[in-house]
Design a binder for these strands. Structure first.
Lengths: 128, 128
DNA sequence: GTAAAAATTGACTTTAACGTAAAGGTCAAT
DNA sequence: ATTGACCTTTACGTTAAAGTCAATTTTTAC
């Protein structure tokens, strides 16, 4: 399954625009091949896009996403750099854990609101 | 404990700027009292700010936060409105669940990267 | 081989969520 | 009465992440 994807094929699959994919390319997140001037995306690119979108959904900036990608591509070799990276990772992790707590709380809150809605509907006498 | 808070007191507590609090007020999220021209925040306002910041952390827009606040203030009385609201809530919930999955995955990923860092450090021969 | 559909680049625009700067009012302490 | 710490409003600036538009190619379909 090492087929090639066109840009619109991917925009449809992921619900994003061509502008977005080119923007990510300009930002150095993607490097699709070219046949002439036309972009051709491989499976690896597809995976990268999934990661990028996942990062985007949880509020990472392009710069942060690029940083993670780059770490995968070439992890730092020097011990100072490695330690710094680990510190940054720890911070990010705390961030994400806080976010997860926020989400739990908000989910509970939404449950409560919905409950109240149902009660209200019952009062009004509407069958759900 | 129904004391009053000044604007800077709250900015310090929450690590935000006065600009931000005034902005939230302009956006109709907060309505602190006034003594003369000076804003005075009550405990209820403090709680609201916490909710606002929580919403912000998980990526809600001001409009979405305002919407939630307003639902609390005056839940819709008409059945059509209620049903619409419930639909919106369901969507938001799906959103948040997706986000939670994204966070879990990313946390795992960060663990892996950190692991790799530790391995690398050991190779280099640095004692952590 | 030609027309329509799809892709390209480049430049300009937009939106949200504040930041920042100007220009000053208030009040307590020195 | 001056300093310093806070407070105010108004208004323009900034940044990230695309959206939009126009003017070309390029590809695909017939």
């Amino acid at each position: 399954m090492n087929r090639l994807y066109s840009i619109t094929e991917l925009t449809r699959e992921f619900g994003i625009s061509t502008r977005t994919l080119r923007f990510y390319e300009d930002e150095g997140l993607l490097h699709p091949e070219r046949r002439g001037r036309t972009r051709l995306y491989r499976t690896a690119d597809r995976h990268l896009i999934q990661q990028i979108l996942r990062g985007r959904r949880i509020g990472f900036t392009i710069a942060e996403i690029r940083e993670i990608i780059n770490v995968y591509k070439e992890p730092p070799g020097e011990s100072g750099q490695l330690k710094l990276l680990m510190k940054r990772i720890d911070e990010k992790r705390d961030d994400l854990r806080q976010k997860r707590r926020d989400i739990e709380e908000t989910l509970t809150e939404l449950d409560n609101i919905e409950e109240a809605c149902l009660t209200r509907l019952a009062e009004i006498g509407v069958s759900t």
